[in-house]
Design a protein around this nucleic acid. Structure first.
Length: 568
RNA sequence: UACCCCAUGGUGUAAUUGGCAACACAACUGGUUUUGGUCCAGUCAUUCCAGGUUCGAGUCCUGGUGGGGUAACCA
């Protein structure tokens, strides 16, 4: 068996910068084992961008024989909900990763984090500030003159006792939201503005999805994240590049707190994919404005959307391994995702015939009531998949686009007075076209050549190049098929600077519904989530959201690669 | 504007840490094929620019240019 150097198994050869850093840390004894964590905030549904992080966090832990925790970063109760905790867990498991016993919530650490804050106050590194939000922002630095130092808060030099008392009062609910915050006392002149006395705790009286109203104050990201990492014994805390300038603060807090264990933050570039958006904000907009049918719409790059569309966990993992991990901003071609799915499905998906846009063909020399049994191969990539029988009958369906009254040489399917082979069947000849009053073709009159079974070309006959799929009318199962295309019409919908809203770049043909499809009989007992290759049209999955009460609905996960030259 | 980060083919990543620019995808050409699929073979870059160090620079240094992130009581 040939090994793909980009597959999960073969990836050992090429090491990305994080692997090299971990190698060095292990070699120099900075850490004795690798411990990572995936830290989502439960405020939305994961998408393919999260899959990159999940694969990195869980994948690296596995590779080094370590552990990866799942930690919910639930420090902002007004944004978070329990349903997202469930959804995130579900998606991670679907992707094929398992946190086992290692499930944490930042909210589990609230008491300890409170103690850390008291420690900072006692050591003179934190104070309660009564200035309002605008004042704090303004005094941290002038945006047009960022080099000027900020101004100290008038409350900056309060006594330890007073700060301790006020902080306890904050916790107790004695203050209203916005009345005061706890700030770190670092350096109001720091070049990195994040170090200009950042806010550590703020008052929020919202109900937390796990701790209810037990807390009136909540730690900020900076106060919570690194400390949770440390408490969980995380060695390598991976995050995206936007947290880069939080790293000095991450380290400052760890250095000023009584911690023996110091995790290390390493940032990598987040994922961009052409023709789609990977930003929670914009995805949310599409869902809320009803521009797509919910978070699991197969057009969306959400994990639940992709799952419903027919993407496999393996294909997504292979994709993540193929794109690698780096600090360079990049946009991956959407085609890679499709490619990985085809690669995953091609060896295993059973072949079936399905006519998506049917046109009737009458085979005149095949009498009514008679049928010819044809042996069809279930999967040419897998002998063990066996064969099935198809009945060729007088009336069959073929694809409307497989017939042209006139066409150039590059079109080698059926033409008037031309020949084409029915897959696993016989060569037919078209000698008549029946149209309705509007000129629409409603039927083709053909004859079949009995000498052409089993792919044979009789002596003296020109070999027929075109082969098309078909379904016998009497045996067919009607169905609806959803065809998907890119969500947007341009590769960088968010970056185009033509002044238009990205919504205007939505692709109206991202979903095309085909309602009168005719499937071969074997598809009648397809199970939800089962993948098929419809010959010549793509890979399809039975939509799990349709129970079959209104007929079957198949989603096209991805088309077959299409190399056809443009035929006229 | 300030701080930080990044720059290798159409795309994404490599380059034994200073030693013949590699892999995959796409594209193009051909071959095989009862799927215009799969599979097979071939073609496709003087590493953003300018200097410098060196026998030797994609890699190190200096200066540009371009792109990105941040400047929240979100994460």
């Amino acid at each position: 068996m040939k090994q793909d150097p980009n597959s999960e198994e073969g990836a050992a050869e090429r090491r990305h910068f994080i692997q090299l850093e971990i190698d060095a840390d292990l070699k120099e004894g900075r850490y004795s084992q690798v411990q990572t964590r995936f830290p989502p905030e439960p405020n939305g549904y994961p998408h393919i961008g999260h899959a990159k992080a999940i694969c990195a966090d869980f994948g690296l832990a596995k590779e080094y024989g370590g552990i990866c925790n799942l930690r919910f970063d639930d420090t902002n109760p007004s944004a978070e909900e329990d349903k997202f905790v469930l959804a995130i867990k579900e998606d991670i498991q679907w992707l094929g990763f398992d946190w086992g016993e290692n499930l944490y919530f930042a909210s589990d650490f609230f008491e300890q984090l409170y103690g850390f804050a008291q420690h900072l106050i006692r050591t003179g590194f934190a104070y309660v500030d009564h200035q309002d939000l605008e004042t704090i922002r303004a005094t941290r630095g002038n945006r047009s003159r960022p080099k000027d130092p900020g101004q100290d808060s008038p409350y900056r030099e309060r006594s330890v006792e007073e700060n301790l008392e006020l902080f306890a009062a904050m916790r107790n609910g004695d203050f209203e939201e916005g009345e005061c915050v706890l700030r770190a006392k670092i350096d109001m002149g720091a070049a990195n503005h994040l170090l200009r006395d950042p806010v550590l705790y703020r008052i929020q009286k919202a109900v937390h999805h796990r701790t209810g109203d037990a807390w009136k104050i909540y730690p900020t990201y900076d106060m919570a994240h690194g400390q949770c990492d440390a408490l969980e014994n995380v060695s390598h805390s991976l995050c995206s590049l936007e947290f880069e300038n939080h790293r000095p603060l991450y380290e400052w807090l760890l250095d000023h707190l009584p911690m023996e264990h110091k995790p290390r933050q390493i940032e990598f570039a987040r994922l961009n994919i052409s023709y789609t958006v990977l930003s929670k904000r914009f995805l949310k907009q599409l869902v809320e404005q009803g521009l797509v049918d919910g978070w699991d719409d197969p057009r969306l790059p959400t994990l639940r959307g992709m799952r419903r569309r027919g993407y496999t966990p393996q294909s997504i993992r292979n994709f993540c391994s193929r794109i690698g991990l780096a600090r360079t901003l990049s946009t991956v071609e959407l085609g890679w995702l499709e490619d990985e799915l085809r690669k995953d499905l091609n060896p295993v998906a059973l072949r079936r015939m399905a006519v998506l846009d049917p046109i009737k063909v009458v085979i005149e020399n095949l009498p009514e009531g008679e049928s010819i049994v044809c042996q069809a191969i279930n999967n040419p990539e897998d002998e063990n998949a066996g064969t099935r029988e198809l009945n060729l009958r007088r009336e069959i369906w073929i694809e409307r686009e497989d017939f042209r009254e006139e066409a150039n040489r590059k079109f080698f399917r059926l033409k008037t007075d031309g020949h084409v082979r029915l897959r696993y069947g016989y060569v037919i000849h078209c000698h008549g076209v029946v149209k309705d009053e509007d000129g629409q073709i409603i039927e083709l009159r053909c004859t079949y050549n009995p000498e052409t079974g089993d792919g044979k070309t009789p002596e003296g006959m020109k070999k027929v190049k075109g082969i098309i799929h078909w379904v016998s009318a009497e045996d067919s199962v009607p169905a609806t098929v959803h065809l998907y295309d890119t969500l947007f019409t341009t590769p960088n919908p968010m970056q185009d600077s033509d002044g238009k809203d990205f919504v205007e770049r939505l692709n109206p043909e991202a979903l095309v519904v085909k309602e009168n499809c005719q499937l071969e009989r074997a598809l009648g007992d397809a199970k939800a989530g089962q993948h098929f290759q419809f010959e010549r049209t793509g890979y399809f999955v039975l939509d799990p959201n349709h129970d079959g009460s209104n007929g079957m609905v198949f989603n096209r996960a991805v088309s077959l690669r299409d190399n056809r030259p443009k035929a006229k």
